[in-house]
């Protein structure tokens, strides 16, 4: 009897688990059939599958320019996040005092504060600095809000780093920058790579900040999708969304592989 009830409980737990997985994954997968529709509006395929919206995507100057812009901005933002986030994590790790703990918490502010509040503040500041609707302005906004991901992941890497390696390097006559470059960075490299992947994804699909600080010149991919949904229900958006999902999935697989290498 006890066994049966335990089996039943296990079965219901498993069903619940699968329900949650489906709930998480289905909305993503729905865009795939929609992107293959043969209709001229957002809908499931009716008479057959068609790649016409993908063709449209690669032929449309507007979409392609958005892909290019998103890529440039995400790359720039990643550089900003990774540089400052890694240096911050290494600095906090070396100091190791209560103050560094405070700094680390402060670095998490961009993901604690609601994005809309952050966006409002950035908008006011960017007006004064003349950064509205510029590449650099968006890169900076995405770069700063991407820092927490880098700080968290690199700090985790550093927690596993043997501090005696740093002492050994210093003892062998290496200055602090040389130690950082030759000993600390190579050891935490998987964490840095992982952090940069997350920083890139963060910028790649960020919408709220862009809505606030960009107008005519900057049209990132998420913003064009947003506009498209508001103005006309072009299935090209579904094709773009599928491409976005694919890029993100590839990056995550890369991340998992670097993590596996690190644990070996």
């Amino acid at each position: 009897m006890a066994d049966e009830s335990r089996i039943a409980a296990a079965r219901s737990t498993r069903s619940l688990g699968w329900a949650i997985v489906l709930f998480l994954v289905l909305p993503i997968t729905i865009v795939v059939p929609v992107s293959l529709t043969d209709q001229r509006f957002l809908s499931l395929p009716q008479d057959g599958l068609s790649l016409r919206h993908y063709v449209n995507l690669v032929q449309s100057a507007a979409w392609l320019s958005s892909v290019g812009q998103s890529f440039v901005i995400a790359s720039g933002a990643t550089v900003i996040s990774v540089l400052s986030g890694t240096l911050c994590a290494v600095g906090c790790w070396r100091l190791g005092s209560r103050w560094s703990e405070l700094v680390r918490v402060l670095m998490l502010v961009p993901i604690i504060v609601p994005t809309i509040v952050y966006a409002l503040g950035l908008y006011r500041l960017w007006v004064q600095l003349g950064l509205l609707d510029t590449y650099f302005g968006v890169m900076l906004a995405h770069g700063v809000t991407g820092i927490p991901y880098v700080v968290i992941i690199v700090s985790t890497s550093l927690a596993n780093f043997d501090p005696r390696l740093e002492q050994a390097a210093r003892n062998l006559g290496a200055s602090v920058p040389y130690t950082l470059r030759r000993v600390i960075l190579p050891s935490i490299l998987p964490g840095v790579v992982s952090g940069s992947i997350f920083a890139f994804i963060h910028s790649w699909d960020e919408l709220v900040l862009v809505l606030f600080i960009a107008s005519r010149a900057i049209f990132t991919l998420p913003r064009r999708i947003w506009d498209g949904i508001n103005e006309h229900l072009d299935p090209t958006m579904a094709a773009v969304a599928t491409a976005l999902v694919a890029v993100t999935a590839i990056l995550l697989v890369l991340d998992m592989r670097t993590r596996r290498q690190r644990s070996e």
Partner: peptide
Amino acid sequence: MVFQGYALFP
């Protein structure tokens, strides 16, 4: 210096 656990650069 020879460290406890050697601290060789892995």
